[in-house]
Design a binder for these strands. Sequence first.
DNA 1: GAGTGGTCTAGACCACCTC
DNA 2: AGGTGGTCTAGACCACTCA
Lengths: 238, 238
Amino acid sequence: MSESGNAQPIYAIIATNLRERIFAGKDNPGDVLPSENTLCGRYEVSRETVRKAFKQLENEGLIYSRPHLGYFVSDPHHDEFTLTFSEEMENCWSKYRDVHGILPDEEVQEALQIPADKKVIEFSRITYDGDMPVALDIKYLPYDRAYPSVESEIRYAVFPEMAAAKVTPFDFYTKMEVRAVSARGDVAEALECGTDEPLLLIIRRFIQQDGTRIGYSKHYVRQPYGKLQGISGYRQNV
Amino acid sequence: MSESGNAQPIYAIIATNLRERIFAGKDNPGDVLPSENTLCGRYEVSRETVRKAFKQLENEGLIYSRPHLGYFVSDPHHDEFTLTFSEEMENCWSKYRDVHGILPDEEVQEALQIPADKKVIEFSRITYDGDMPVALDIKYLPYDRAYPSVESEIRYAVFPEMAAAKVTPFDFYTKMEVRAVSARGDVAEALECGTDEPLLLIIRRFIQQDGTRIGYSKHYVRQPYGKLQGISGYRQNV
DNA sequence: GAGTGGTCTAGACCACCTC
DNA sequence: AGGTGGTCTAGACCACTCA
């Protein structure tokens, strides 16, 4: 909030003025805003400068334009959250307990969209806080893709990097799913916790832009570790 | 200037060309892109047109600009997910079982940032699939704020709308937190489920832009209901 | 000093909408 | 026909970086 002189460009000032009206509730979702030419006159600036202000608000999600009609205030998306999830946990260390080729069960066949006779590599990794296991991560990758040949390389890699090894950085995206499950069988054993302890299960599917499945991961986390936090709505940061 | 039904504006063509190079891995994160003037010459267009192409890619998150240095390819954010969460569940109905003023316990005091002697309103709502309870939602609102006076209005409202009743649509945002918990005591009773059944707990804090707390909500969901799904990375939609 | 991106202007033509 | 936003031009000055 440091505005001693006038360091701000004109379009930013116009954008701020419009934004403040929306925040104050003077312009509400669905309302039409002043036209470009109106603001040109009001601020005595060129049209491109006004357009830059509108474009900025549009990028912030506050307004949208309907060609030939005008600019309108958007509906806020209070149900849409942004959150960060990473396998890496602070102050924790992890080790692979198992890396080997297997034939996929039905779940993995579906996730990687491969037939039952196509081998996959299964990576199983446990993360520890001190000597207490807090997370179990099981990954599946199609076998025919050439992953780093040296197994030692693989042992320390986490998933986005593993996927990125064979595709270009922007050529894949990830779908995630969050569930609550009880620790059971293998999982309870690996995490050295009681059956019925509630775990967060984060499932990820790594998908190439052309639809090809390049990875599947199940991440079990004991609580309160691996807390997922997100945020939604417009945050004033401009 | 190529014919053959070219509906796309020039800046979009330039953006597409740059984007395709990035997707193909010809330009990688950290790489510098051609300068504005270089592209002006290459495409024989004005500088503002080239700038529009760069601006679009910047808004897509593919590139960023460093003034006086150039445009660079971004690092992809494969750990950042977008997900949607709403109290409303498909094919389900819900009813409030309790709405009353109480004195906040420590947890609610912290969440709403109010003193122990400040009353809050507690709303407790259960969502059913048929006759089976699948979600319990408990909300807390500061008492001094004038919420819809008619209690019957409140009974059918969900949270973003309730908050929006007293603040303008863009004047608040939401922080969420996801945990796995076991059904216990009141919660198990309300959901008519066994103790130790794993539940997803979604906590939301509704915060005004000036920092004022306007709501706190705990949402317990039996599995596999209320599955949270998200997506990350660049999706080709252009 | 040459090159870069950031801002801004004063025009222009277009397609589409509403009156 | 007059208003709207979408695109585009050919200039301009600035502040900054780098060699």
